[in-house]
């Protein structure tokens, strides 16, 4: 399988504070990579570097053969290949569900309105929200907003999808509907990078688990099940223990 994303020697600093050091990662087409780790370990910052929302101080990020460089004009082209879903949904509050979804395909990719609407409705139907198409974001629940945000990212036909703790702001009963949507995406062969605190979900969806701590990859495993049962590093063991109650 072909390599879609390649990160080499990535370093990210905020001032003098090094938040990511020497990150190396490559992701193949169709792979689902889950990144876990304690709060403040740099997971979200890492995702934000991948689509140029954060500038990096060293290293190279290559998506589909093209370098990601924040602040460059070409970045808008690259971002169309990289869909991102945020923790706080970030729908546009002044636009309806449908307008939120079709805006970028129409304005950025210059697709026709009819075609964008047609596909938007198909995707909304898949996530069970087609009857909400004319609602404003404030009229939706958190889980519904997040599914709209996922559809909005999907309509750009990205090669890779980044999920930044997309269930962290949701009520527990809403988490399930969002995770179900992501699972079906994974099954349909989407390439995904997921930052999450939902360990059982991570185990179910991951082709590969990355454990990040203090800005570096401490453990990497392509066998999610055995990672959660028997992590090899002490730091991963300690981290996973915080999810157990005995």
């Amino acid at each position: 399988m072909s390599e879609l994303l390649k990160v080499t020697h990535l370093q990210k600093k905020f001032g003098d504070n090094v938040v990511l050091k020497d990150i190396n990662l490559s992701v193949k087409k169709g792979e689902v990579v889950v990144i876990i780790g304690p709060s403040g370990c740099g997971k979200s910052t890492f995702l934000r570097c991948l689509n140029g929302l954060e500038e990096i101080q060293d290293g190279v990020i290559v998506v589909d053969g093209l370098p990601v460089e924040a602040g460059k004009r070409e970045i808008t082209k690259l971002r169309q290949k990289i869909g991102m879903v945020f923790q706080s949904y970030e729908l546009f509050p002044h636009k309806t569900v449908l307008e939120n979804i079709i805006l970028a395909p129409m304005k950025v990719q210059k697709r026709s309105k009819d075609e964008a609407i047609k596909e938007a409705l198909e995707l909304l139907d898949k996530v069970g929200l087609v009857d909400k198409k004319d609602y404003y974001p404030r009229q939706l629940s958190g889980g519904q907003k997040q599914r709209v945000a996922i559809v909005r990212a999907l309509l750009m036909h990205p090669d890779i999808l980044l999920f930044d703790e997309v269930t962290a702001a949701l009520d527990p009963e809403m988490v399930h509907e969002v995770l179900e949507t992501m699972l079906s995406l994974a099954k349909s062969g989407s390439t995904m990078l997921i930052v999450t605190h939902e360990m059982s979900f991570a185990r179910a969806i991951a082709d590969r688990i990355i454990f990040l701590d203090k800005g570096e990859i401490v453990e990497e495993s392509s066998d999610a099940k055995s990672f959660f049962i028997k992590p090899t590093t002490e730091r991963a063991k300690k981290f996973l223990k915080t999810f157990d109650y005995e």
Binding site: R48, N51, G52, L53, T76, K77, R79, Q80, I82, G83, M84, F86, E90, L91, F92, L103, A104, K107, V108, Q109, R152, A153, M156
Partner: peptide, 9 residues
Amino acid sequence: ESAYALGMD
């Protein structure tokens, strides 16, 4: 950022 992430300039 949400707009930038969708490829908008």
